[in-house]
Each structure stands twice: as C-alpha cells, then as structure tokens.
Computed example of a mutant assay.
Amino acid sequence: MGRREDEVGDAPPWSGETVMWLACLSVALMPTGLALMAWRSWIGPVSPVGGLTAYIVVFTAMVVAMRPWTVR
C-alpha cells in the first residue's frame, strides 16, 4: 500500500498557478469591455491608452482577488 502522493504523481507544470494566471488574464477582459462600452455610450470615444489602462486596473483587481501565486 502506497501513499496517496504515489498514486496521484506530480502535477504537470502547467497546472495550478499557471492556469490561475491565465484565468486572471482572460477574466479581466469582460469587465474591461463592459466599462469601455459604457464609457463610449455615455461620454464618447476612448483612446487606446485609456483602454489599456482600464484593462491593467481590472487585471490587477483580478490578481488581488484570485491570488494565483498561492495555488499549489
């Protein structure tokens, strides 16, 4: 009878933390798109720098909320 770790084996290097970082990158797209859409409807055109800034802010919020470096 072996231990549980022997049966499961090591996790592949792309699992866990890497998947969480990719999730943060992709999940940040929808709120950014919604915020930019609202901005365009109510105020007017958004500069590319404004769109990038909005994405960086939302991505940072996702990273703080999900804390991908803690997944093991």
Rank of each mutant, 00 (worst) to 15 (best):
R67D: 13
A28C: 08
I56S: 15
L52E: 05
S26F: 15
E5F: 09
M30H: 13
R40M: 10
S15L: 14
I56Q: 07
L29G: 07
G9V: 03
M20L: 15
A54F: 03
V64L: 13
L52R: 08
P45D: 12
P31V: 04
S41P: 01
G16E: 02
L25D: 12
W21I: 09
T60I: 10
D10W: 05
L52C: 05
M1I: 13
G51M: 07
W69E: 12
G16C: 05
A61K: 00
R4E: 07
W21S: 03
G16P: 06
G44W: 01
V19I: 15
E5I: 12
L29I: 14
W69F: 06
P31M: 01
V71C: 06
D10R: 09
G51R: 00
W42T: 05
C24P: 01
R67T: 13
T53I: 05
V19T: 10
C24V: 10
W42M: 09
P45A: 10
R72N: 09
A61V: 08
A65G: 12
V57H: 01
G50V: 04
L36G: 09
T32Q: 02
G51I: 02
V58E: 01
A54I: 01
V27N: 02
G50Q: 13
M1G: 07
A11H: 05
R72Y: 03
W69C: 00
R40N: 15
D10I: 10
R40Y: 11
R3G: 06
E17C: 13
A38Y: 14
M37P: 00
I56N: 08
E5L: 11
E17A: 11
A65I: 07
G44P: 03
D6F: 14
M66C: 08
W39N: 05
